[in-house]
């Protein structure tokens, strides 16, 4: 908790040319993600409209908003599950127009899913190895004929997946069937699997959903740790405000598909539009 808090208080957000803000340390770097006027329509309904966001190279950013605000739709746009009907997405300055999900992944985007999408029938280790698919390659015939390359690459895959599972201390679970893990462990495994693809931008869709407060706090520290260790940017969707406010440097608030506020945690908490749309209502409900 303290570590995560420290990261936030260190951060100074500064404006960049595209009217967005990124942490001061990332100003001179190419932003890992930049969207301009991004939007998608489903049969006349604008699910996301004029979405502008810039994420610095090592920023931890949050995307929040009430249910149905279009947060997951933004993720699906960034990972090319949907093709946007307007606007552009730039990953490391590269236009993503017309790319497939696979190509987007190769550009360095990895994600987890709101409704967990593990390969249930495979083991934990195999799930991570799927993430390593494009990192340790050998062709089909080396696999069938068990050529030396098979043994070398399989060994590397095994070592690397154990290393990655160690982030969350999940090495002991390596042989378990992924579908049989408890909910929290499944969420963590999804993060490990996404990290295995060596992304530049990691998208976490409600990583703390279904976790208890203790697990959430642990996750918060791990998110900061992952950013430091891998030097990547993380964009997360989360309803747990303690996590968002605790770990995110820049926060973007979405309501009815439109951005209503952007800024640091303190700015967001003080923003009347946000309070009205989201936090204010929540407080009333709790009272």
């Amino acid at each position: 908790m303290t570590e995560a808090k420290r990261h936030r208080s260190d951060t100074k957000m500064v404006p960049v040319p595209s009217q967005s803000i990124v942490p001061e340390r990332d100003v001179n770097e190419l932003p890992v993600l930049e969207t301009r006027h991004l939007g998608i329509e489903f049969g006349g309904l604008k699910a996301v409209d004029d979405f502008n966001l810039t994420i610095g190279k090592t920023e931890i950013a949050g995307l929040i908003g009430p249910n149905g605000a279009g947060k997951t739709t933004v993720f699906n746009l960034l990972t090319k599950v949907y093709e946007p009907t307007s606007g552009v997405v730039l990953i490391n300055g590269k236009d993503m127009h017309g790319m497939s999900i696979v190509q987007a992944s190769r550009q360095g985007i990895a994600r987890t899913f709101q409704n967990i999408r593990l390969f249930d029938k495979m083991t934990v280790e195999e799930n991570v190895r799927i993430g390593l698919h494009n990192k340790y390659k050998y062709d089909m015939f080396s696999g069938i004929l068990r050529l030396p390359r098979y043994w070398i690459q399989e060994k590397r895959q095994h070592e690397r997946s154990m290393e990655l599972l160690d982030i969350f201390g999940m090495q002991d679970l390596a042989d378990k069937q992924a579908g049989s893990l408890p909910y929290g462990a499944q969420r963590r495994l999804e993060i490990v699997r996404a990290l295995a693809t060596e992304p530049k931008l990691l998208l976490l869709d409600e990583p703390a959903a279904g976790m208890n407060p203790h697990e959430t706090e642990e996750l918060m520290e791990n998110i900061a740790k992952i950013r430091d260790r891998f030097g990547i940017a993380i964009l997360l969707i989360e309803h747990d405000m303690s996590l968002v406010m605790g770990v995110c440097e820049g926060i973007c608030v979405l309501n009815f598909g439109r951005v209503i506020a952007k800024g640091t945690a303190d700015e967001i908490q003080a923003n009347p539009a946000v309070i009205e749309a989201y936090l204010g209502k929540r407080k009333e409900a709790e009272a």
Partner: peptide, 8 residues
């Protein structure tokens, strides 16, 4: 979808 997101 998950497989595609992993670059497969």
């Amino acid at each position: 979808i998950a497989a595609e997101s992993m670059g497969i």
